[in-house]
Design a protein around this nucleic acid. Structure first.
Lengths: 200, 200
DNA sequence: TCATCTGGTTGACAGCGTCTACTTTCTGAG
DNA sequence: CTCAGAAAGTAGACGCTGTCAACCAGATGA
């Protein structure tokens, strides 16, 4: 029974849930198994989470937090274009380094009622990082001939990044016979096009 | 027992499985429920599919077939650029009109062993439509200054389309406060950029 | 001091996927 | 035409799951 103080079990549950997902896939996550691994009864988790989906939402929230942290970990220099480029690379890097977390965030359907407010907040925070950076770009350079509201640029960039990240994780790349080098080329190409479409 | 001839139940199972998914979500698909709805015993499905995941794979395969059909339904004119543009719109249209099918195809993790060969074939066929169209473009215009192998253009285009389609389905658009009109604008913008990056 | 809240327990229930064993029905070779 | 064997469907059992209910120990605060 590694839980010494109250509220400690809650955190342990989330961590252990992630471990189970890691080993057996999200579809085989079971509260009973998590409880078993922590040496508590099968009902103990219900004292902290109302349902299985809520514990899953907590895991996803943690992923979003890590993601946001990863996105904003690069030191921001004075050139917002460079910043944006680095952030894009960081995005793709996260998806490649932590495919499980990425899939959990963008590939996991939580029931509506589960809308863990913390998860939502974390997700919005992650997106705001990209969004703010774009806004910053237009602020720093008021004459920047950005052709449409920031919103639309943000959507375009996010679409492209998310799409590529998803594709890279699927079997598509092997189906197309892409080598690792070619994957890198694809990333570079996408980044270049992204920059081009934003550039003055 | 609505199944008169052999092999008829198999098809009915797939259809009924889709109905269940439609009503209750893919995570609540159960073979027993499908069997119950068809008035057969809970073991009957196992005579046609080795496991629950295999029946799910069959459903996904059907989605891919519909998707491919939708993609290639537009009459091909002589202008491959126009063709590509229409195909992109068709892609996004499918995702918007049939979000369930789209999610089933690109958001559903099937266990490795399940690799229903028919599903794989259908998926590859769907992608080949886009891929071939791109190849056709460079063939028709040998001087077309396409900057990189078709493969990379295909990946870029697919990334952008898939990313936007996914984003449109998530709660992101409402989080960003996008109206329906603005969604349409986002689509148009993406299509324009796609064309620009391919255009001579 | 003692009622109350919090976090833990055990037990029960129905639903699920899947294994095994049985029966029925179809089929095709002799 | 016959009949063995395969294919299709049925029934029962097992262990797993999420969740509801009832119970219990200890911390807490009036």
């Amino acid at each position: 029974m590694p839980t010494k103080k109250k509220q400690l079990l809650k955190q342990a549950l989330v961590e252990q849930a992630f471990s189970v997902i890691e080993e057996k896939g999200v579809e085989h996550l079971s509260l009973r198994e998590v409880a078993r691994r922590l040496g508590v009864s099968h009902q103990a988790p219900y004292k902290h989470f109302p349902s299985r989906d809520h514990i899953l939402a907590a895991v996803v929230a943690r992923c979003f937090a890590e993601f946001a942290q990863h996105l904003s970990s690069r030191p921001s220099c004075n050139d917002p274009f460079d910043d944006l480029h680095k952030m894009g690379l960081a995005y793709l890097e996260f998806a490649q380094k932590f495919p499980l977390q990425y899939r959990l965030m963008f590939n996991t359907a939580l029931p509506d009622g589960t809308a863990h407010s913390e998860m939502l907040a974390q997700a919005q925070f992650a997106f705001s990082i990209l969004y703010d950076k774009l806004g910053e770009m237009t602020l720093k350079d008021p004459d920047h001939p950005i052709r449409d509201p920031v919103k639309h640029d943000a959507i375009y960039i996010w679409s492209a990044l998310h799409g590529l990240a998803s594709l890279m994780q699927s079997d598509v790349t092997s189906t197309l016979g892409l080598s690792n080098d070619e994957r890198a080329v694809a990333v570079e190409r996408l980044m270049r096009r992204m920059s081009l479409s934003i550039a003055p």
